[in-house]
Design a binder for these strands. Structure first.
Length: 498
DNA sequence: AAGAACTTCAACCGCTCCCCT
DNA sequence: TAGGGGAGCGGTTGAAGTTCT
């Protein structure tokens, strides 16, 4: 049964994002794009009759040419009763901020505590707010929230300390450091982890200073995908980030020192180092360390993701010093041991960063060694000026790259798109290795837009590719994402490994 | 007024979890 | 216990709206 009028009146003026143009058909013959009033009516009628759920049956029973997922989403986000629309109230905003501090990007769980609001709505709100705050140089979390969470972390740490002391008494002796450090995520405390990388960091720093090799267990911990879900049990009792000297709120740490992030994945300890995490630490200036924040990057879904996406080690030569972030407790304020876990994670990462700062000199990671300055200092280099001789290979490469940029306003063509994609790879590669001391080249920051001849509003840059001051259409995905990522990037904060 | 720049948000995608057989 | 399918989640996309120049 297909009702008349189907597909005639889009509900929203906005087209769906994933598709190019409206009303595309999926490979399974389902319609994509904005919903029409007629489709909404069909879906509402269906739910009225059959209730929610069994979304894949909607198409069979109603003739609606939408996949089950699409139906569920439409219902959940727009059609179901008692949905609140419009701006978030100040009270709701407050709740969202607090929840995000505790939960991270757990939109669905946040939505569960905000009646009438959808996860999508909250997610969009948060992302918008975060960008706004970043631009304005404002902290993402109010001091009050931060303090509360810091207190929570301290409390958790104390609890863990007690557990550790108890378990320490139980253990007769330890045969190896490694065995002490690693324990299985399959244990009964699977969801009760807290990582104590402060101690690890100091150990690594100490090893480095003494020219000792990094303990193998540590590098294994950081790089393996072992099935035992290697975790770092509580060993350190110091949480420097809780101190008032904490830099997190002053937004310095991560802009200087991109922090590798890790997540737990069903008992597997995996590193999630990627170009996105690189940009996460360098996206803006100033920057809040915002849990869950990832710079928009070539998506894994994107077929044109550059093959030159650097390996974790090329991004983070100091990978051996990367730290586990997994915080939780038995309280309601726990963070799941996977993905973003809110301000708690941020606090822990900050701790990691503080320690890592010391390790910049570490000879264990020769790639990281800069010209003798730490990262903070290297930012100042641009003020002092530097001649060509002082430029590292990457900088020179960049100079060459930028000086060879073609003229602006190239019209799209197969050739130009192909060239842009090729340049994407070069650019990504350069970005990954670009020193922090050099400002964003003018040719990149200055953009020209070419009109697509549309009748209103001109070309939307968000829909265009901005590449090296040029636009091409359609967008090579990697470039489009890179543009987003670089949208407000302060060039000098790109992590330097020169 | 035109078009560039920026923002918003609906809807998609891939992945994971969970339940049922 | 394995695996298939449905549901849900979080990330991402890009067209349209809005503001700026």
């Amino acid at each position: 049964m297909v009702l008349p009028g189907l597909g005639q009146t889009p509900i929203s003026m906005k087209s769906n994002g994933a598709g190019v143009g409206s009303h595309r058909m999926s490979t399974h013959g389902f319609k994509k794009g904005p919903w029409t009033t007629a489709e909404d009516a069909i879906l509402m009628e269906y739910v009225k009759k059959h209730g929610e759920g069994n979304w894949n049956a909607v198409q069979k029973n109603s003739g609606l040419m939408r996949c089950g997922k699409s139906c569920r989403l439409r219902w959940a986000n727009h059609l179901r009763p008692n949905l609140k629309k419009g701006f978030f109230s100040p009270e709701e905003e407050k709740i969202i901020i607090e929840l995000h501090a505790k939960l991270g990007n757990k939109w669905a769980r946040m939505a569960a505590q905000l009646p009438g609001r959808t996860d999508n709505e909250i997610k969009n709100y948060w992302n918008t707010r975060m960008k706004r705050h970043q631009r304005a140089g404002l902290p993402i979390y109010p001091h009050q929230v931060r303090d509360e969470v810091a207190g929570l972390v301290l409390q958790q740490q104390q609890e863990e300390q007690q557990i550790q002391q108890y378990e320490g008494r139980k253990r007769s002796s330890s045969s190896s450091l490694s065995s002490n450090f690693l324990y299985s995520s399959q244990g009964k405390n699977e969801h009760d982890y807290i990582s104590y990388f402060s101690l690890l960091d100091s150990m690594i720093s100490s090893s480095a200073r003494q020219n000792k090799a990094i303990p193998s267990f540590y590098s294994n911990l950081c790089t393996s995908s072992s099935n035992n879900g290697g975790l770092v049990p509580p060993l350190s009792h110091s949480f420097p980030f809780v101190s008032s000297s904490s830099n997190l709120y002053n937004q310095n740490i991560t802009s200087q020192l991109p922090a590798p992030s890790f997540h737990f994945n069903s008992g597997t300890f995996e590193q999630t180092l990627s170009f996105s995490s690189l940009l996460m630490g360098a996206q803006t200036e100033p920057i809040d360390f915002v849990p869950g924040l990832k710079a928009e990057l070539p998506s894994s879904q994107t077929p044109q993701q550059p093959t030159s996406t650097p390996s974790p080690t090329s991004l983070y030569p100091s990978i051996g010093s990367a730290c586990v972030v997994a915080v939780s407790s038995n309280t309601n304020n726990y963070c799941e041991p996977k993905g973003s876990s809110g301000l708690l994670d941020a606090l822990l990462v900050e701790s990691s960063s503080l320690s890592r700062n010391e390790r910049q000199e570490c000879e264990e990671f020769p790639q990281v060694i800069d010209k003798g300055e730490d990262v903070m200092d290297s930012v100042n280099v641009e003020e002092e000026g530097e001649d060509d001789d002082n430029k590292c290979a990457v900088e020179k490469q960049w100079d060459h790259f930028s000086s060879s940029q073609p003229s602006k306003g190239v019209k799209s063509s197969d050739e130009s798109i192909e060239r842009m994609n090729s340049m994407d790879e070069d650019l990504l590669s350069l970005l990954n290795n670009f020193p922090s001391s050099t400002p964003l080249p003018e040719w990149y920051t200055k953009t020209t837009r070419m009109s697509n001849g549309s009748s209103s509003g001109g070309m939307r840059d968000g829909n265009m590719v901005l590449y090296a001051g040029q636009n091409v259409s359609p967008a090579p995905a990697a470039t489009a994402n890179l543009n987003r990522a670089l949208g407000s990037c302060c060039w000098k904060n790109m992590p330097g490994i020169c």
